[in-house]
Amino acid sequence: MMTNLFSSFDPSTYLNTSLNWLSTMLGLLFLPSMFWLIPSRYNFMWNKIIITLHNEFKILLGNNSIKGSTLIFISLFSMIMFNNFLGLFPYIFTSTSHLILTLTLALPLWLSFMIYGWFNHTMHMFTHLVPQGTPSVLMPFMVCIETISNMIRPGTLAVRLAANMIAGHLLLTLLGNTGSMLNLFLINFLIITQLLLLMLESAVAIIQSYVFAVLSTLYSSEVN
């Protein structure tokens, strides 16, 4: 039984089970079929998405990127998107609405970029701290601002994804809880509203996973 509105986002109280985080791995069930079954429209669609993402990430990373580096960001996109979509189904825990998962993805990724950049391209990283054409008087302030903006990147990545997932689910929950107190006309209106919100959430699930992957790609392209 939910104690408050946010209980549905608490893995320790949601359905009173400790297996909620297993939903993070459910996305893997959708992938293996393409390796041993006759290709279907789903397989062709997924291959098309992967090829499109590969070409786009390749442009963002530039010519100096290591071969196969786009696969990291395609895998990241796939994992987040599957988890976002699974969270829209009843009784499936939305793992991407938690900072535990989003920070686990964002922090090591950003930290690896920083370590690689500062060890291998030190001067290039220093030049990023002072934008070209900055007056000498403003240089100390620009270094502070650029350093802070660089440090909060994993936090903004994680919070953006988690907040967008929580916001839509909360709105659906709030509207759904009012159904028992409405008359027949308003219930029909509520169902239509819920369906429209569900379509919006489906779009948000794709957009947020894409934004996370693209921003990670841009951050990695800056250290080369």
Rank of each mutant, 00 (worst) to 15 (best):
K67D: 14
G68F: 06
S69G: 06
T70C: 03
T70G: 02
L71D: 06
F73Q: 00
F73D: 04
F73W: 01
F73N: 01
I74M: 14
I74W: 09
S75L: 15
L76M: 07
L76R: 09
L76I: 10
L76N: 02
L76C: 01
F77Q: 00
S78G: 11
M79H: 04
I80E: 00
M81L: 13
M81W: 09
M81C: 14
F82R: 01
F82Q: 07
F82S: 03
F82V: 07
N83K: 02
N84L: 06
F85V: 05
L86Y: 02
G87P: 04
F89R: 10
P90V: 14
P90F: 09
Y91F: 15
I92G: 11
I92M: 15
F93I: 08
T94G: 12
T94L: 12
T96C: 07
T96G: 00
T96F: 11
T96D: 03
T96H: 05
H98D: 03
H98M: 09
H98R: 03
L99A: 13
L99Q: 06
L99K: 11
I100W: 11
L101C: 04
T102C: 12
T102R: 03
T102M: 06
L103H: 01
T104R: 15
T104Q: 12
A106R: 00
L107H: 09
P108V: 14
P108H: 09
P108Y: 01
P108I: 12
L109I: 13
W110Q: 12
S112Q: 13
F113L: 10
F113S: 13
M114C: 15
I115S: 10
I115H: 08
G117S: 01
G117F: 01
N120I: 05
N120M: 08
H121N: 12
T122E: 08
T122M: 02
M123R: 12
M123D: 12
F126T: 07
T127L: 15
T127V: 06
T127G: 01
H128P: 11
H128F: 15
L129R: 05
L129F: 02
V130F: 09
V130I: 01
V130Q: 01
P131K: 00
Q132M: 15
Q132G: 14
G133H: 15
T134L: 04
T134C: 08
M139F: 03
M139P: 00
P140R: 06
P140C: 10
M142T: 02
M142H: 05
C144S: 12
C144R: 15
I145L: 14
I145W: 04
T147M: 09
T147K: 08
I148M: 13
S149T: 01
N150Q: 13
N150H: 13
M151G: 12
M151A: 14
I152Q: 00
I152S: 00
I152A: 04
R153M: 05
R153N: 11
G155V: 05
T156E: 03
T156N: 12
L157A: 04
L157N: 03
A158C: 06
A158Y: 05
V159R: 10
V159M: 11
V159I: 11
R160Y: 11
